[in-house]
Design a protein around this nucleic acid. Sequence first.
RNA 1: GGCCCCAUCGUCUAGCGGCCAGGACGCCAGGUUCUCAUCCUGGUAACACGGGUUCGAUUCCCGUUGGGGUCACCA
Length: 492
Amino acid sequence: MAEKPRVRFAPSPTGYLHIGSLRTALYNFLYAKKTGGDYFLRVEDTDQKRLVADAVEKLVESLEWAGVENGEGIVLDEKGSIRQKGEFGPYMQSERLELYQKYAHELVKKGKAYYCFCTPERLDSLRAVQEKAKLAPAYDKLCLKTYSREEAEQKIKAGEKYVIRFDVPETGEISFEDAVRGKIFFSNKNLDDFVLLKSDGFPTYHLAHVVDDHFMETTLVFRGEEWLPSTPKHILLFEAFGWKPPQYAHLCVILNKNTRKKLSKRDGDVSVEDFKKKGYLPEAVVNFIALLGWNPKTEQEIFSLDEMSAAFDLEKLNKAGAIFDQEKLDWMNGYYIRQKDDGELAKLCRPYLKKYNNSLSDEHLKKIIQVEKERMKKLSDIAEGTQFYFDTPKPDADLLKWKSMGSEDLEKSLNKSREILDAISEENWELEDIKNKLMASADPKDRGALLWPLRVALTGEKKSPSPWEVAWVVGKNESMERIEQAIASLKN
RNA sequence: GGCCCCAUCGUCUAGCGGCCAGGACGCCAGGUUCUCAUCCUGGUAACACGGGUUCGAUUCCCGUUGGGGUCACCA
């Protein structure tokens, strides 16, 4: 019987969720959904120097925002506090220290690892020498050669600080089958005697990953391509323990468009939180990043999470690095905005309209949304060039003129608009009505003669929605007021 | 630099020996009730190079070039 697929997303709590990490989490989620397997969240907080307050909460919040939810591992309760769910816990590595220590020492007993007492200073100078000689920096096994196990244990008893290093065989080759790249070979001679247990008693990623994914029965590990070079270390570790390694799927890197290097925090906004703040919808972000390194092999571009998981397949993962193209994200975000229900969109947009909050009614906002949504790429766009919905504009006199229109014609045009609109009662102040009346009066050969001055009178802008839309949103009183003001301004 | 990975339009990609090399974003042009946007139509644009294998290579193999990743008591 085949084992149950179990996958995990295992971030370290750095304070934010990188967009690339979200993709990794997403693939885990999709894969589990597709295969009926488990997807759990484990937190890799083994670096004491990099602890960040509230990092785990933020991480999970970002994942939840994206809809990438795990049924097992680290979760947040209703109050937003961290909880652990599942039988394979604890899922916080800092709570599993004894386990790692036990297995690190077991490896020493087996003769596969050894104690090392070298100081950081010695390691630094060793590295410096090697680099100078253009050699690959690697530990020289000094402590393995110098001390017998008994001597080493004596030193430890005497209170000396130590780390445990893996004793990589000097010859031989290691290979594994990557789910996206196929068979990959590495020579042991190129591998360093990496540290398993740090001097503060915490494990390194290498040890923790291997121990955890063994005991948590992980069957497949999705991770970024940057892990590929350390995979042989992990395989070696699994072998040393006599455990079966999981399958690995090394995902292509996500590249910055300008530098063509791994998208990093230095490049600006790369955290999920940043995208949320800037007004991107989770549907768009998720849909977009899913397609960075994975392709359904059909011509479909827009996917719900369900559609994605149905189409998800390891075979469809791409190898080559993918450039993060914000223009396409913007298009997709605009698409999802257009699909959204006006009421829902209004709620999402309100935070971007803080400056108008006290005076802005739900009804008014919903009307603005209705006419603005087709030109929005981000939620934040609702606050861009939309001033005229809230404040009476002061149109530029030249801008009011349609083409080569003279002042007299301009005044006539505005007067005509005033007449047409004034004839519509407050009760009939509906979009269709306003539009029909205006269109009926406009000269089909030159509609701009009527519509342009009116639109500018209402908005003060070169670009905006149609005059009837703006008139409808701001209401009859305000519309009439604006037309009057425009006419009055001509008299100067 | 060592090791590893990768290589189709500007970008995301389809293609798994024989295709006018397909789609999407972007861009350009045209259309739809003034501008903008939406929407529709059309267009622009790619197999890095050199050797093989083969009747035939974008596709398979090798090399070159190019790009990326990685070389910590960080993950």
